[in-house]
Design a protein around this nucleic acid. Structure first.
Length: 575
RNA sequence: GCGCCCGUAGCUCAGUUGGAUAGAGCGUCGGACUUCGAAUCCGCAGGUCGGGGGUUCGAAUCCCUCCGGGCGCGCCA
């Protein structure tokens, strides 16, 4: 069960019964255990409103709550807080129920499930994935997993950049600079090389740029030859992407790239023109927010138009994005769509969402932005020779470093280290990214990343493995572990309080698209498990205590594995 | 010029949307293994939350203003 809504409801009812008014309880976990486990802050604001003494009101609320079985103590403190200390017996019962709930570990599904589209990863065709794609892919995957576990219907969509200006350049570039042999041997490398050449040349060679535009127009008009070439580019890129996604353990429900919406684009522009939302300007079709009744004043002030058709008649990703929203609304009946995209694109999304709102779409659209990946010097991360670091080579290095470190620093047998290199190396990369608030820029540091101590992926994995180890040695069948849990030692009480928070943490993470809430919970949990090991022998304990401690160990194990799973990180049983 | 974001311990970062004495990790220093796994644990030190105003019972959080940094801004995605 979720603790916070339960306590919030109790508190709100107590306020109502004691004071005769409806008011938010404003329940929060305490920051300091000396203040109990949770606190009610709402009485302070209420006292202001009612012009009464806050401590006197708090006293009445506390008295009302005192009989509740959930609480060991309800005390007023400070200017008018009500501090709540949970009863050990009550927590133990909550955890007994979670222990018995093998399917969900006590995490209830949301009361109002939604259909949510998560648009993430979305690499471009003809390019290798580089570090820039790392965050969208890892974050998006974790968000998908978390929303789904929270009980929503989720459509994870890889909105590939497979349509647009770059294909004109690629087609002409392949014809003039490409090598069929190289394309055969290493397709992506060759496509990238050709694209770089072509896009450089187009800047200084107008005839070449015109040719590229002409080829793009032919492609978009359905020319069979260009279409076949395009299909080939798409196919080789997808098979390269599959390798990376497989290593990362990332799956999509859909791969609806920009090309999937091509046929809808003329209709989108026509509708915008008909509705008077867009108009022609300098040959292009644009939305000018300053000219529209009821448009967002901030967008109006910026005077930057949203261009949906270029003067040469070609469409842009703006147009595609509108068509995509309409499709998701109709095909999936989606309530929400999340765009897990670099926060630098916030301007584009602000415009897109406003245009779609003006069209009357009611779906909730949210730009789940994230910061850049920076190198140690604070600049965007590059390799030694200045090119963007590919994701594949990053994952290779992470695995290599993890394996070497496990052998050299921890003394693991080489065979075990080899077996664990992917789980630990890639898990460390993911954890380092997901533990941080996504909106801040992310400083990439190998030593911090592949760290085996402190707040790092391997630490959490290690504590999980230790839980497995103790349970293995207990000789008990996991299915037979059923408690009952009884809390006596301080380390058990601290561990139990943390375990009881998982349901609230999962729902908070799902609602706010913040996987780092889960990561923070896991680290805190792992630390408390470590302290529990220090002070509470499990295997040598006498029967009732032994059963309780085995139950705590098993619930910890399951919760660590569950939480890591929500982040897309493996939880090996031996390390 | 317009708009958005950021500034918290030496370093990397949290801070549940306004709550109590601002917290972690790393690093430094000092302790704990004949004990279910020391990849662990315990302790010490480290802060005018960039500066200054304001709002109120209460501000790292909201408003204003400076300083410093990043990013985005017509036919790329």
């Amino acid at each position: 069960m979720r603790i916070e809504p339960h306590l919030e409801a109790l508190a709100a009812r107590a306020i109502h019964d004691a004071l005769g008014v409806e008011a938010p309880a404003i329940l929060r976990p305490t920051q300091d255990a000396a203040h109990g486990d949770y606190q009610i802050n709402g009485v302070l604001g209420l006292a202001k409103r009612l012009k009464e003494n806050p401590r006197a009101l708090a006293e009445k609320v506390a008295a009302r709550l005192a009989g509740e079985e959930a609480f060991a103590a309800c005390e007023i403190a400070g200017p008018g807080f009500v501090n709540l200390r949970l009863s050990d017996a009550w927590i133990a019962r909550v955890l007994d129920a979670a222990l018995a709930d093998r399917a969900r570990d006590g995490v209830p599904p949301v009361e109002a499930p939604e259909t949510v589209v998560v648009d993430f990863s979305s690499p471009n065709i003809a390019k290798q994935m580089h570090v820039g794609h790392l965050r969208s892919t890892i974050l998006g995957d974790a968000i998908v997993r978390t929303l789904r576990f929270a009980g929503h219907t989720v459509v994870g969509d890889n909105h590939l950049g497979d349509w647009g200006t770059q294909f004109g350049l690629l087609i002409v570039g392949m014809r003039e600079h490409g090598s069929e042999a190289a394309l055969e041997a290493a397709p992506i490398v060759e496509l990238e090389r050709v694209y770089r050449l072509a896009s450089e040349r187009a800047k200084t060679d107008p005839a070449f740029a015109d040719a590229a535009r002409a080829e793009l127009a032919k492609l978009q008009a359905g020319d069979p030859q260009n279409r076949a070439l395009w299909q080939r580019f798409v196919d080789v890129t997808k098979s390269a992407l599959d390798v990376i996604y497989d290593r990362l353990g990332v799956r999509f429900d859909e791969w609806l790239g920009e090309s999937a919406y091509d046929e809808a684009l003329p209709g989108v522009v026509a509708t915008l023109l008909e509705r008077g939302i867009a108009r022609e300007d300098e040959g292009a079709v644009c939305v000018f927010f300053g000219e529209l009744e009821g448009a967002d004043p901030k967008l109006a002030k910026q005077k930057v138009p949203f261009i949906v058709r270029k003067k040469d008649g070609a469409y842009l990703y703006s147009t595609t994005d509108i068509a995509t929203v309409l499709y998701r609304a109709e095909r999936w009946r989606a309530d929400r769509a999340l765009y897990v995209v670099d926060k630098r694109q916030s301007g584009h999304f602000a415009q897109l969402f406003e245009v779609v709102r003006l069209l009357g779409v009611s779906m909730t659209l949210e730009h789940v932005g994230f910061g850049m990946v920076l190198g140690p010097d604070g600049s965007p991360i590059k390799t030694r020779d200045g090119t963007a670091l590919t994701l594949a080579s990053l994952l290779d290095e992470a695995e290599e470093r993890a394996e070497v470190k496990m052998v050299e620093e921890l003394g693991l047998e080489p065979a075990l280290a080899r077996e664990l290199r992917a789980a630990v190396g890639i898990g460390a990369v993911k954890y380092a990214d997901l533990m941080q608030n996504r909106t801040s820029d992310y400083t990439f540091d190998w030593d911090k990343l592949i760290a085996f101590k402190g707040n790092a992926g391997p630490y959490v994995q290690y504590m999980h493995a230790r839980c497995c180890s103790v349970l293995r040695k207990s000789g008990e069948a996991l299915a037979a572990i059923a408690g009952p849990i009884a809390l006596a030692h301080e380390a058990e009480r601290a561990l139990a309080r943390q375990l009881a928070k998982l349901p609230d943490v999962v729902h908070a993470a799902a609602a706010s698209s913040n996987p780092h809430y889960v990561a923070a919970h896991l680290y805190d949990l792992a630390s408390r498990v470590a302290v529990f090991w220090e002070h509470c022998p499990v295997l040598d304990a006498e029967p009732p205590l032994r059963a309780s401690r085995l139950a705590l160990a098993d619930l910890s194990r399951r919760q660590l594995a569950r939480g890591l799973g929500l982040l897309g990180i493996d939880a090996p049983e031996r390390m």
